[in-house]
């Protein structure tokens, strides 16, 4: 009962702030709404006993990625009164991509059997997650780290002082 109530609250927070992300015309407010979405999803993870995933969601997305986005946005938009005005072409493109994504997700949702009643009673051990990352999923893990390294080198190259 309590859990269901918490689920609906967090789901509502996630959805409402997700609507805020796309509806807001001020780009920093959009970013703040995105914070609500990411936080709501993290709370849902907590509710599902996936503590590690929730913490990583907060550390990586809310605390790391999003703050970089906000940082970039703040440096580029000079005043709180600059409104975000997409061109018609951008809107059409966004609509097409969103429809494709939505149909894909809906097909995934409908086309699969979702096992019911297999709630985790305890959080999976951090140790197990770590072991899996460094054994079964080593290649994707390392590929992700190489990708990040490439991004870092690229950023350093772009940001170097002109010689």
């Amino acid at each position: 009962m309590l859990e269901a109530l918490a689920f609906y609250i967090f789901a509502a927070v996630t959805l409402v702030s997700a609507i805020g992300v796309v509806a807001s015309r001020n780009i920093v407010r959009s970013a703040v709404c995105l914070l609500g979405t990411l936080g709501g999803v993290a709370c849902l993870y907590f509710l599902l006993n996936a503590n590690l995933l929730a913490a990583i969601q907060l550390i990586v997305y809310a605390g790391g990625t999003l703050i970089l986005i906000v940082f970039g946005v703040m440096l580029t938009s000079k005043s709180p009164w600059v409104v975000f005005d997409p061109t018609r072409g951008q809107v059409v493109g966004a609509v097409i991509v969103s429809i494709l994504l939505a149909t894909g997700l809906c097909m995934l949702l409908v086309g699969n059997e979702w096992p019911a009643g297999t709630a985790m009673t305890a959080s999976p051990h951090v140790k197990d997650v770590g072991t899996m990352l460094l054994t079964d999923y080593l290649v994707p893990f390392e590929a992700a780290s190489v990708l990040l390294l490439v991004v870092m080198i690229g950023a350093a190259y772009l940001a170097r002082p002109e010689k």
Binding site: A42, N51, L52, A54, A55, I56, L58, I59, A62, G63, G64, I67, S123, H125, V126
Partner: peptide, 13 residues
Amino acid sequence: DIGLLYIVAVSSL
């Protein structure tokens, strides 16, 4: 079980 990570996650906000 994630004790310390919880503090890091919260303080990063």
